[in-house]
Design a protein around this nucleic acid. Structure first.
Lengths: 155, 155
DNA sequence: CAGAATCCACCAGGATACTG
DNA sequence: CAGTATCCTGGTGGATTCTG
């Protein structure tokens, strides 16, 4: 087609053309994805929403996450206004995170993700294993359900 | 609260308790995240759900995505069973993607993400810009709304 | 227990060019 | 128009160590 020839020889012009309706018509998808961007962010938010709010507790909950990574992601969540951090000036140090209002408003989405994954678990585990590519992520573990049990026992 | 005191002084007990069912209790969150893992995956799914099903159309819709990346992510989505690919053996080649049933079942989540991002756009754009870290991702553009308009005109 | 500082490996994804 | 092959880089997140 001619347009292809154009693309080859008049690339700059076409480029300009494309750029005419250029940018920043971001859809909300990307904003949300940005906030949830991080291997453990949704899980962390979910944990905090279930009263697992101390870093050490969260670490116990997710054996796969490092202290550094947890700190980084918590800091990002805090920077994005999804959680607030409360430090108790005592020894040993004690820190608690809580969801902000907007952080709470994220929970339906996270719950939906969780439910969808659970509902389709067998299928998903199969196809994800089949896929040669990123199938590694499945090594991440999540003990949140267990914690719920434990928590209910504690409570 | 007493539960917290317990958590402090009988930590080891709690710890043991948690560790007893040690691992691989992946929660659905990670499965979902795996499927949606990719800078453009949700947007692509959304596009396909709105009858933007040809690669060239999708490319036009998202100026930020490359052909190669689009192909990769489409292939992953196909591998995960979220979309199916139909190739028309003709010249010029024509390809159409459609959502599978399970792919469709993902749309409520994607829509929710989209709505949440839109509903909190001003706040999110502010805090994401503030955050020194990953604020770059905002350069991604999304013309899906534009396309909707265009599509309605075309249709 | 909380958290910061380094160092580092890996890969997602962008740029480019070519084929059918 | 669709798809592949290379090459390259930036950033995420893992490991380790040290402080308060």
């Amino acid at each position: 087609m001619e347009s292809y020839t154009m693309l080859k020889f008049e690339k700059s012009k076409l480029h300009m053309y494309e750029r005419k309706t250029p940018l920043t018509i971001d859809c909300g998808l990307h904003l949300t994805k940005e906030v949830l961007n991080g291997k453990w962010k949704p899980a962390i938010l979910r944990a905090i929403s279930m009263e697992v709010k101390r870093p050490s507790e969260i670490l116990r909950l997710f054996p796969g996450v490092t202290r550094r990574v947890l700190n980084v992601q918590l800091k990002e969540l805090e920077g994005h206004g999804m959680v607030t951090k409360k430090t108790y000036p005592q020894l040993p140090p004690k820190v608690e995170y809580s969801l902000t209002e907007i952080g709470w408003s994220l929970m339906p989405i996270i719950d939906a993700m969780n439910q969808w994954g659970d509902a389709n678990r067998s299928f998903l585990e199969k196809v994800i294993k089949q896929a040669p590519k990123i199938g590694e992520t499945s090594k991440s573990t999540c003990q949140i359900y267990r914690h719920m049990t434990v928590a209910s026992k504690i409570g």
